[in-house]
Nucleic acid binder design. Structure first.
Lengths: 157, 157
DNA sequence: CACTAAACATTAGATGTCAAAGGCTATTAT
DNA sequence: ATAATAGCCTTTGACATCTAATGTTTAGTG
């Protein structure tokens, strides 16, 4: 019809995410890294994952994908992996000094990027954005039942 | 001094986008399609792209990626490609009857998904969301607005 | 103890994406 | 006309990612 329905919100979201994450990747590349490398380093530093499954979950990717990145990062000398002597199923991941260096450089780039990204947008609006994004995620997640997700969504934990 | 650990807005965006687009892909798969196939069909129907470059731009992917999908879709009998007799550089893309059928089925799935996605969120907030998403994209786009100082002053574009 | 189940991780195969390089076709300049 | 340039598309090579299948090690059970 003349006025097609409001443009699909999912499409707007996907497009914006593509633009932003592309720009972020460029910023990290300029600092000698990449998005997955940054996420792995960040998760290693901010959490203390006991095993790769937890690390993968923190990063937001599958274990198989994580294995891939850890292999590459180990080959670059950013980290080491050894079997845990107490439980030889577990691979203990540890940053090397070079890994720490890269972490610091990428953190600088990430902080700078975040400032650029939110430039000129009031904090209140960013909170609103966060709230709506969580609501959208909840709307399409497994529990497709009703909309009891009132108030503060609470962090998934 | 210690910067408040506001979680990076880009990360929230990326996570939400991943969840939503994953769910959308599932919905399309249940209807016998996929995200790229749906976007190609939609762009073919709503615009009248003169050539593949325009189609790729409408879909939001590179020409090389589009070639890949068109090959697959032609192999499935969803569309045909012929050289334009008036300009033999151009490949004219046309939907087959089967392509039309798939379009209708995927459209139903997409409409249903959009309703689920926006369920319970007031229109006003969705407009706000759209506005902020566009602002975020603009903030990191090529136009390197070097200094974000000057407050909410002139927003380029 | 032997068997089975669970936990942890890797490998294999598929898809979707991009950048760079190449191959036709048409247009323009000489 | 012939050569140079531009436009349109495909091919190639490289990633990141997922799912499914496979190993490897530990824990549980009769």
């Amino acid at each position: 019809m003349a006025a097609p329905p409001r443009s699909p919100i999912g499409l707007q979201l996907a497009r914006a995410s593509k633009v932003v994450s592309g720009a972020f990747d460029d910023a990290l590349a300029a600092a000698g890294g990449s998005l997955p490398v940054w996420l792995v380093l960040l998760s290693l530093k901010t959490r203390q994952p006991d095993n790769q499954r937890e690390l993968a979950e923190a990063v937001g990717i599958q274990e198989a994908t994580l294995t891939h990145h850890l292999n590459a990062m180990a080959a670059q000398g950013l980290l080491t992996r050894e079997r845990d002597p107490a439980n030889r199923r577990v691979h203990q991941v540890r940053l090397t000094g070079r890994g720490e260096d890269v972490f610091l450089r990428l953190r600088t780039a990430a902080v700078e990027f975040d400032r650029r990204l939110r430039g000129g947008i009031p904090d209140g609006e960013l909170e609103e954005l966060d709230r709506i994004l969580q609501r959208l995620s909840a709307n399409v997640s497994e529990q497709a039942n009703d909309t009891e997700q009132g108030g503060a969504g609470g962090l998934p934990r």
